[in-house]
Computed example of a mutant assay.
Amino acid sequence: MLSQALLAFLAFCCVASAVYILNDIMDIEADRAHPVKCNRPLPSGAASLGTAKCLLVGLVASSLVLSLKVSEWCMLFIATYFVINILYSWRLKHVVIIDVSLISCGFMLRILVGTVGLGITPSSWLLLCGLMMTLFLGFAKRRAELLMFETTKGANNSFTRRVLDDYSHEMLEQFIAVTAACTIIAYGLYTVSPQTIAIHGSDNLIYTLPFVVYGIFRYLFLLHRRDKGNDTAKDLIQDRHLLLTIAAWVITTLWVLA
């Protein structure tokens, strides 16, 4: 199982890298006009377009070969991930709601590769929780981008996402509220579901729910009072409250399952 998991991890690393290269190839002209992205290898000329295309093909082929060694399901999920990102980069990233939904689908496919792809049946509630969480973070990011766009309006309009024209603060606030609530509910139902209790032999996972609730509330605070949300990973690393919450959740989970 460990070797299969490692192969699946490597396969997804390859396809994720291929997607980044694909995005850079498709956005090369726009990136050349961007004040920051112009320093990337392709728009800056540090790497040739031909080299990037060869690397892209090699990474996609490697991901498919590695994933097939794991299972057919694993290869199917990885191929689907790549196709979704092609559609996203091609046009769908400019379609309101669909843009965030496709990003969320990408994260869900990661979960499926690590579960179904390895022959593990995932909890339906856990999948729903993952879906709602990624939608929550995606809409939070759009909110931060919209705020930045309005703050710098007139200066950097050519560097912003066209899809932001179709979003509004009111709409995003509703999306964020709904997905945040659904995340908490789905996680809570996961902890008390008969399947979860049977697998872990404990009904005490419900005691980890307060950490999830606080973590989401803390992130909402950062969105509204600290203008965060544009870079989730950076927000997480820089906020000690979130770090402590995650640490407490991990410790409590390990204690419950011990």
Rank of each mutant, 00 (worst) to 15 (best):
V95H: 11
V96A: 05
I97C: 02
I97E: 05
I97H: 07
I98P: 07
I98D: 06
I98V: 09
D99N: 01
V100H: 00
L102A: 01
L102D: 02
I103N: 03
S104W: 09
G106M: 00
G106T: 02
G106V: 00
F107R: 07
F107V: 07
F107A: 07
M108D: 04
M108K: 02
L109Q: 07
R110M: 07
R110C: 12
I111P: 00
G114V: 03
V116Q: 08
V116R: 12
G117N: 06
L118R: 00
I120K: 05
T121I: 03
T121D: 03
T121F: 03
S124K: 03
W125L: 05
W125G: 02
L128W: 03
L128M: 07
L128F: 02
G130Y: 04
M133I: 04
M133Q: 02
T134R: 00
T134D: 10
F136C: 11
F136M: 11
F136E: 08
L137P: 06
L137G: 09
G138E: 04
F139L: 01
F139R: 00
A140Q: 00
A140W: 00
K141E: 08
K141P: 05
R142M: 08
L146S: 09
L146T: 08
L146V: 06
M148G: 14
E150C: 11
T152C: 14
K153L: 13
G154M: 13
N156L: 15
N157L: 12
S158P: 12
F159I: 15
R161W: 12
R161A: 14
V163Q: 08
V163N: 09
L164W: 03
D165F: 02
D165G: 12
D165H: 11
D166G: 09
Y167I: 08
Y167K: 10
H169A: 14
E170P: 10
E170M: 13
E170T: 14
E170R: 15
M171E: 13
M171W: 15
M171K: 15
E173H: 11
E173Q: 13
E173I: 11
Q174R: 15
F175P: 04
F175V: 08
I176C: 06
A177L: 15
A177S: 15
T179K: 05
A180Y: 00
A181H: 13
T183R: 09
T183P: 04
I184V: 12
I184S: 02
I185F: 13
A186V: 03
A186G: 04
A186E: 05
Y187S: 03
G188N: 09
G188E: 12
T191D: 04
V192A: 05
V192R: 04
V192H: 03
S193Q: 01
P194G: 07
P194T: 05
T196G: 01
T196D: 05
A198V: 02
A198R: 03
A198C: 08
I199M: 07
H200G: 04
H200Q: 07
D203A: 12
D203K: 14
N204M: 10
L205Q: 01
L205S: 10
I206K: 13
Y207D: 06
Y207S: 06
Y207R: 05
T208F: 01
T208R: 02
L209S: 05
L209D: 07
P210E: 10
P210N: 11
V212S: 07
V212E: 08
V213I: 13
V213D: 10
I216A: 11
F217E: 13
R218K: 12
